[in-house]
Each structure stands twice: as C-alpha cells, then as structure tokens.
Design a protein around this nucleic acid. Structure first.
Length: 506
RNA sequence: GGCCCGUUCGUCUAGGGGUUAGGACGUUAGAUUUUCAUUCUAGAAACAGGGGUUCGAUUCCCCUACGGGCUACCA
C-alpha cells in the first residue's frame, strides 16, 4: 500500500463468547493502529446465518470496551465505510462474484451437498479443483445452454473460484516472511453461497478493499487460505491495494495439544473468554476473566506478552506503553501455550501497582456482590491499601477484607482452644481495660501497649498474638494485627474481644 | 493422507558463528515478617536428533523426528 493511512480491522463472527485468542488479535490490531496513528475498525463477519447468535455482537463490543481497546469505526459508531456488518452488505458481494464469473475467474456450480459428499467418499483426498471440475455439475462442465436453463429455473447454485493450474502463489507475511503455495493444492473455494451470502473468502477480500484496510492481522489458522485471498485480490484487479498480511501465532492449550478452545476452560480450570458468556439457548454460562477477578490491565498485559516481547526485561506494561513499544518484528512465529499461573501473577502485580483509589470501585463491587455493605469509602480505601499486596485476584479482596466491615461469625477454634487457659482470658480482659483508656488509637501505640502487657503478665507474645488475630479476623490470615486494630477502632475492637472470649471459653 | 507453519529451562521468552546461553512465571532452599502474603537472597532447570558449511555451530543449509494449523455452501 502506498501513501495511505494505516487502517486495520478486527473481524470476529458473532457466534458466541470472545475467546482469548480473539482478544489478542484485536489487541495487536489496536496496538499497531494506535502506534501508526491509524484507524482500528470492527467488522462483524456474520455471513453464516446458521451460526448467528443473538447478543454476541454487543458482548464483543463490551469485551473490547472492558479491555480499553474500543474500535474507531464499527457497527456501534458507524463510519465512512458503513455498514460494518457483512449481512448488511450482502448485495455488494454478488456483484463482485458475477464480475469474476464474467472474467473467467469463477464459475457457477450446481452440485448439491449430497452429491459432493458422495464424491468425497468415492474419491480419496477429493478436491474441487481443476482435476475433478469436469466431473461435476458446473458452468465449466455444462454447456452454456444447460447453465442458462438451470439458472432460469432457479436451481440453487454457488459461485466458485476457478483456481489456476500449475501456478505458485507467493507472498510476504510480515511475521513469517516468504510463504509459497502451489495452486494445484488449492481447491475451488465457494465464494458465494446458495443463500446469496458470501463466504469468508469473498467477503474478507471485498471488504478489506472497500474499507481500505492496509494491514491484515489474523490467526495462523488462516494461513492455508491465504492463496485463495491473494488470487482474489489479483483477479478483482486490486493487487496494488492488497493489505500486508500478518498471521499471528496461535494460543495453545497448556498441554500443547491443539489450539485453546472454549471447552478447555472447564478442563483446565481457568477462563477462556474475556467476560462471562451466557448461552441463551442452553442457559449455560462460560466463565470470563473479568468475573473471575482479573483487571483489564493485567489481562491485556499478559495477552500482549503472549507471542510478542519487547526485547528487554520489562514485563509489566500498560496499554499506553504497549502502544509505544509494540513492533511486528518482535512477534514470534511459534504458538504459545497458555499459562494461567503467569496470568495470575500479572494480575497480582497490577493489583500491587494500582492505587487504592483506582481499585476502589472494583473492590467495592466484589464486596457488595457478596452482600457486604460499604458505608465508609474512606475506610474502604485504607483497607484496600493494607490488604492489596496479598490479593492475586480481585475476588480475593472478599476474604482479605470482609472482617473490616463485619464481625467474624466463625473462628478458627482449632487454632486457639487446645491451648486456651484462664490466664489468657484474664490477659484479654485486662487488654480491654487498657485499650478502653487509650486516648490515641494508633497502630504503634496499640502494639506497644500490647507488648507491655505481655511483659507484665509473663506471656510470650506469640502465645497471645495469634488468638488476638483470630478474635479480630476469625482465622490465621490478614495483615499486621495492629494495623487491623487501628482500622477497626476502639469500640469494635473491644466488642470483638468480648465476643470471641465467649466463643473461646465455651 | 496431502499442503502449510513451527521447534532455546516444565511454561512465556532473550540471544545468535567463539556467551559462565540471560530474564520472567512456576519450583526448591534460606532471610525478613511472632498468621498468611509481600519483599530479599541463593539453587535446580533448555539450544529435538543426524548430516553438512566452518578453525569453530545452539546460531547458517539440508534431512529426519516431533508439535501445530488447514483440508465445509464455518469463520
């Protein structure tokens, strides 16, 4: 492409939830576009009417928005090249398909699916191409009269690309370099289906041309059909405008056997979709990263590092930094196995990195979702600050911080009861008195007083520290005891000690 | 089966004709933290195999093996 502004597109088909790999393709499109000052287009490839799923398009948009990679043009905003849904562009494709027929680069085929099935069974490695064309019912094997008759009679038919014999189709992939295919290995792909809709092959070429796409990123699974597309660009007379191709490495299952699929989520115990996806028909929900407690920053960060690297030791990247540093040259060729442990590590890093303020709304949602009422946002902020280093997922904030808002309902009695003594009861009784008289409620002072009391009463700190923690939070977890006490306040602390004393001595 | 793509620690990867083959996740050990986590230190851990080319290959070439993708009127 010469002298044109960069335009890329993410072209999902609205058939269900948005897969990890899809988000990464969208991300790489976005990064490249933004870096080049270009335009990121969303094009909905809904040419398969049998697989259309209600709500999937909006869901895809929501996922992209959650990730922060909203398209510049698309069905949601419209744009100069609208419509952006292929189903709404149906009429456009027939014109080009007919043009190809007129120029001898495509032909009508009247074979029924049953006939083709039979042929496939009969001929091993059957390929609808120059070798078998003449044995089938199409405008090459039939006379002009026969074809006209069938057409006039409205017999269902498709239009197929007439792939030439003995040619090499060569192109330069931005990631893989030179790739060559022999046309004898390429079959006469259907371009226009019997229902009048184009197949992916025709639609992608026509729309990339019409929408002035300059760089086409897609998964490696498309590599084998690249020669079909290149032939089409040539036959349509647009070769000079063909986008540069970039076939992205696949994201593989953790065991390396095959590309990651929707079903793997349940099998390996991690999400595959960006956000929860509910199947309207079966009512089944496929879990998403967002609901599992991932931050979009972390999700984008680890997806960006899957198949790409900056060439430095930096691991943590914001979207902005990714835009800055991204380069096609540093995209890998080989597929990457998905590592959920590393994904979680990215999330923990981002939780640590982000301020309590920017985490606030999300943490609040996690707590409220569990029925915890948050009345005091200032307190919430302080709580987040003291517990965030020990959270890997956003959902961990529940266990790590409920006790700041609710008195524990249960205690880890096994950890205290066996070693409980009356002198310990006395110790905490005295502690209540001391704390009640304290003028300043502040962590260091609380700790000093506690330790002083230990000395007075002859307790080893360890003997009473753990019980104290359990009184306050219910179990053996949480930040430093006196940070908790400080945040809880005098009244609540005393209530908790009294309440726990009852449970411990019961 | 055919065609295409790929192959550096368990995983993500850096590197690239002469390196102690580097980093990160995970893992192991230790320190700190009188809970847990964080943090810190140290350790184990890789160039698929065979032929070339070369003074010298993990790096370049070929073959093999292995892995993956595609092979629909699905995208």
């Amino acid at each position: 492409m010469s002298n044109s502004k960069v335009r890329v597109r993410f072209a999902p088909s609205p058939t269900g939830g948005l897969h990890l790999g899809g988000v990464r393709t969208a991300l790489f499109n976005y990064l490249f576009a933004k870096q080049q000052g270009g335009t990121f287009v969303l094009r909905v490839e809904d040419t398969d009417q049998t697989r259309f799923v209600e709500g999937a398009e909006q869901y895809i948009l929501d996922c992209l928005a959650w990730c922060g990679i909203t398209p510049d043009e698309g069905p949601h905003t419209g744009g100069q090249y609208a419509p952006y849904r292929q189903s709404e562009r149906k009429a456009i494709y027939r014109e080009y398909a007919e043009k190809l027929v007129a120029h001898g680069h495509a032909y009508y085929a009247f074979d029924t699916p049953e006939e083709l099935d039979a042929k496939r069974k009969e001929v091993p490695n059957f390929q609808y191409g120059h070798f078998h064309r003449s044995e089938l019912r199409n405008s090459i094997s039939l006379t002009t009269g026969q074809v006209e008759h069938l057409l006039d009679a409205g017999v269902p038919h498709v239009i197929r690309l007439k792939v030439p014999e003995d040619e090499s189709v060569r192109f330069n992939d931005m990631i893989r370099g030179d790739v060559v295919f022999e046309t004898n290995q390429v079959d006469d792909k259907v371009l226009l289906k019997a229902d009048g809709m184009p197949t992916y092959h025709l639609a992608v070429v026509v729309d990339d041309y019409l929408m002035k796409i300059t760089h086409a990123f897609r998964g490696e699974e498309w590599l084998p059909s690249a020669p079909v597309h290149i032939l089409l660009w040539k036959y349509l007379g647009w070769a000079a405008d063909m986008p540069q191709w970039a076939h992205l490495p696949l994201i593989l299952k953790p065991d390396g056997h095959g590309k990651l699929s929707k079903r793997d989520g349940a099998k390996f115990g991690f999400p595959v979709y960006a956000m929860d996806w509910k199947d309207q028909v079966t009512g089944e929900t496929t879990p998403g990263f967002r609901e599992m407690g991932f931050l979009p920053e972390a999700f984008i960060n680890f997806l960006g590092m899957l198949g790409w690297n900056p060439g430095t030791d930096q691991e943590i990247f914001s979207l902005t930094e990714l835009v800055e540093k991204f380069s096609i040259e540093r995209i890998n060729k080989s597929g990457a196995k998905f590592d959920f442990e590393k994904a979680k590590w990215y999330n923990a890093e981002w939780i640590k990195k982000l301020s309590a303020e920017s985490l606030k709304l999300k943490v609040k949602a996690v707590l409220e979702d569990k029925g915890v009422a948050i009345a005091d946002d200032e307190l919430l902020l302080k709580v987040i600050e003291t517990v965030k280093d020990r959270c890997t997922l956003l959902t961990d904030f529940y266990q790590q911080s409920v006790y700041f808002f609710e008195t524990p309902k249960e205690y880890d009695l096994n950890a205290v009861k066996p070693k409980w003594t009356d002198t310990k009861t006395d110790f905490f009784g005295t502690l209540i008195t001391r704390y009640a008289e304290l003028p300043n409620w502040e962590a260091t002072q609380l700790e000093i007083d506690f330790k002083y009391l230990c000395e007075e009463t002859g307790f080893k700190i360890g003997d009473v520290m753990l019980p104290f923690r359990i009184m306050l939070v219910g179990g053996k977890f949480g930040p430093h005891v006196f940070d908790i006490v400080a945040l809880l306040g005098k009244e609540e602390t005393i209530i908790r000690i009294e309440k726990a004393l009852v449970a411990f001595t019961a």
